[in-house]
């Protein structure tokens, strides 16, 4: 310890601390409302569906919580670099401070509480429908409250198709869903792992071969959305997209009935509707395993 300078160090230290605190509080008081009120409503992925709005809410909360953290570290570092520099050839040592237990205690305490709050918040959001847009396996905890429309998403290299079991198992290349109704997506793959990403709906679910991965969504109003593959699936991964549209309920029923009738001759040739489809030697695996290869050993 350097006892002679200790007291003055401490006093000037307190002044520095107060200054940093004030700058930080002012900046936070300006930036946090900006993030919440100005930026927040425009944060992705938008408000087309219940789930997208939920994700936007999470982004808003996390962004607002993150703002003071970023500001604190940046304020501190910039303050230190401006005020506590030394230049020149005579090198002077700083005060001998090896620890300040109170600081460390506060820091650990505050970060721990923040992190635990975020984990509780995230869990609540996940279980409370806002996480329903993410793939939740074959038997998800979340279940639709009312009647829902099942739609199957079949991914294969390199396109998505969509089957509607309640409309005779018809298969389409564009995804049409009604507004105001709970939709259950049953996502599966015929070959490698893909990921069904309906961006504006806030839905993302991996398409695994042999697995039925379920996600829910409820769209608020009619509108268009993009479907993309979000898991690298080979050559044309970047081009694996599809169009999607949310329609009014009446429009949807009319479209579905019309399409079902139109596609009936094709639907007849398709494999029977099932939650998963086992690829055989004629599938995307090609001749890799050979025709004699036992599919069920």
């Amino acid at each position: 310890m350097a006892p002679d300078t200790g007291r003055t160090e401490e006093r000037s230290g307190r002044a520095d601390g107060v200054r940093i605190l004030v700058i930080w509080l002012i900046l936070s008081a300006i930036c946090m409302p900006l993030v919440w009120f100005v930026w927040g409503p425009h944060l992705p992925p938008g408000g087309l569906s219940d789930q997208a709005a939920g994700q936007r809410f999470d982004n808003k909360v996390l962004g607002t919580v993150a703002t003071p953290v970023v500001l604190l570290v940046c304020t501190f570092i910039i303050y230190a670099l401006v005020n506590w520099r030394q230049d020149g050839d005579d090198i002077e040592d700083g005060p001998y401070i090896t620890n300040k237990v109170r600081w460390s205690g506060w820091w650990v305490g505050i970060t721990t509480v923040t992190v635990l709050c975020l984990a509780v918040f995230g869990t609540y959001e996940l279980e409370n429908n806002n996480g329903a847009g993410s793939g939740s396996g074959p038997s998800p905890l979340f279940a639709a409250s009312g009647p829902y429309l099942p739609v199957q998403v079949i991914a294969q290299q390199w396109r998505f198709t969509f089957r509607y079991p309640t409309y005779g198992g018809m298969e389409t290349t564009s995804l049409m869903i009604p507004a105001g109704q709970e939709i259950q997506f049953n996502v599966t793959s015929l070959d490698v792992i893909h990921s069904f990403w309906a961006y504006q709906l806030g839905v993302k679910a991996d398409a695994n071969p042999g697995v039925n991965n379920v996600a829910f969504v409820k769209a608020y109003h009619p509108g268009k959305f993009n479907v993309m593959c979000a898991e690298l699936c080979g050559l044309w991964h970047g081009a694996m997209t599809a169009d999607g549209q949310v329609m009014t309920k009446a429009d949807f029923v009319a479209w579905a009935n019309r399409t079902e009738a139109q596609e009936a001759p094709v639907t007849k040739l398709l494999p029977k509707y099932s939650t998963v489809y086992a690829p055989d030697e004629t599938g995307a695996g090609g001749t890799y395993y050979g025709p004699q290869y036992p599919v069920n050993p």
């Binding site: 160090e9 000037s12 230290g13 520095d16 570290v73 501190f76 570092i77 230190a80 670099l81 506590w84 520099r85 030394q86 230049d87 090198i91 002077e92 040592d93 700083g94 005060p95 401070i97 620890n99 300040k100 600081w103 460390s104 820091w107 650990v108 970060t111 721990t112 992190v115």
Partner: peptide, 20 residues
């Protein structure tokens, strides 16, 4: 939390330092 420790240590070391 442990990642935050690194920031605490960094900021604590910068505190009242004679930075070159």
């Amino acid at each position: 939390i442990p990642t935050g420790f690194i920031f605490l240590v960094g900021m604590g070391t910068l505190w009242k330092a004679r930075i070159r």
